[in-house]
């Protein structure tokens, strides 16, 4: 009886996978495989590609722009993962166990919502806003510096090799901060306030409680935030397109933009495909770490 009912239940459901699998094959799987194949060829996008084996990958190894683009992705990991996670932890703990009890929980949720606003607007629009503020002649940033007598600090922020990448990083911190903050504050709801009070009675300072209770209890959230934002940082394209187009020179080039440039500006489709394949590999390694961690969590919980 049990066996019959389970085969009966499984019959007729396979059809429902067909639309999804057709679209998936056409728009994701086939392009993914084609891109890998193209990465072993020389191709301008017109005519037939020429098979050149691993030559594109060999070229990448000696190409300084290739390495620079991934190094800039590392800078973006600092701006989108490291700084927002650390700052978000402090802010979440501060709003939760300092502001909420003394000033009121309304104030805490107000600040949380306000800091989250940059997350709501499209990334590319945020980048356009900052490009406008960074403008050297009339932009808000240089205006403010002039107003407080720091004319010497005025810069062509996005147009100078030395300041362009830090300026982009600042924007990414601004965009990202709200995300870990909201996640961490939700996680803090699990914390029993009595544990804090007991620690305070034992004479633990705020920082000590922060380190040994808050951070420890938020470990699952920290892990999720770190891995997802790392993947986001590796995928960054739109802010670079809107603010610097990778320049000046190649000062702010990132892997995704470098690949795009090879595809659509330099007609080096094979090389662009190789860069995209390397980027995919790096992202998949981070993603595998995440899935492994999550399944581990589930097996602990279940």
């Amino acid at each position: 009886m049990a066996a019959r009912s389970s085969t009966g239940i499984n019959r007729g459901y396979g059809w429902y996978l067909i639309p999804g699998l057709v679209l998936f094959t056409l728009f994701i799987f086939a392009p993914f495989v084609a891109n890998i194949v193209v990465s072993f060829t020389r191709w301008s996008g017109i005519g037939m590609p020429t098979w050149i084996g691993l030559a594109n990958y060999q070229k990448a190894i000696t190409d300084t722009t290739f390495w620079l683009s991934f190094r800039n992705n590392l800078s973006l990991i600092v701006a989108m993962t490291v700084i927002p996670t650390l700052l978000g932890l402090f802010l979440a703990a501060f709003l939760f166990d300092w502001v909420a009890p003394r000033v009121g929980s309304g104030a805490a949720s107000f600040f949380r919502a306000a800091y989250y606003v940059p997350q709501v607007i499209p990334v590319v629009v945020a980048a356009v806003v900052w490009r406008w503020m960074y403008q050297p002649d009339w932009g808000v940033i240089n205006y403010l510096l002039g107003m407080v007598g720091l004319e010497a600090w005025q810069q062509n922020w996005l147009g100078d090799k030395t300041t362009a990448m830090p300026a982009v990083m600042a924007v990414m911190v601004w965009i990202q901060l709200g995300y870990p903050l909201v996640i961490f504050m939700a996680g803090l709801q699990r914390i029993d306030p009595e544990m804090y009070e007991a620690a305070a009675l034992d004479g633990a300072t705020w920082f000590r409680r922060f380190r040994s209770i808050t951070v420890w209890l938020l470990m699952p959230e920290i892990f999720v935030v770190v891995l997802t934002t790392m993947i986001h940082a590796l995928k960054v394209f739109a802010p670079i397109y809107a603010m610097t187009t990778g320049g000046p020179g190649n000062a702010t080039i990132v892997a995704a933009y470098f690949s795009y440039k090879n595809f659509f500006e330099r007609s080096q489709v094979g090389y662009g495909a190789a860069v995209a394949t390397v980027l995919t590999t790096v992202i998949l390694i981070v993603a595998v770490l995440q899935v492994r961690y999550q399944t581990q969590q589930e097996s602990w919980e279940g």
């Binding site: 728009f27 995704a256 690949s259 795009y260 860069v275 995919t280 992202i283």
Partner: peptide, 12 residues
């Protein structure tokens, strides 16, 4: 998790 760049040219 795939980056758009790994699919875009064949899609295009």
């Amino acid at each position: 998790t795939l980056p758009g760049e790994a699919l875009i040219y064949p899609q295009y």
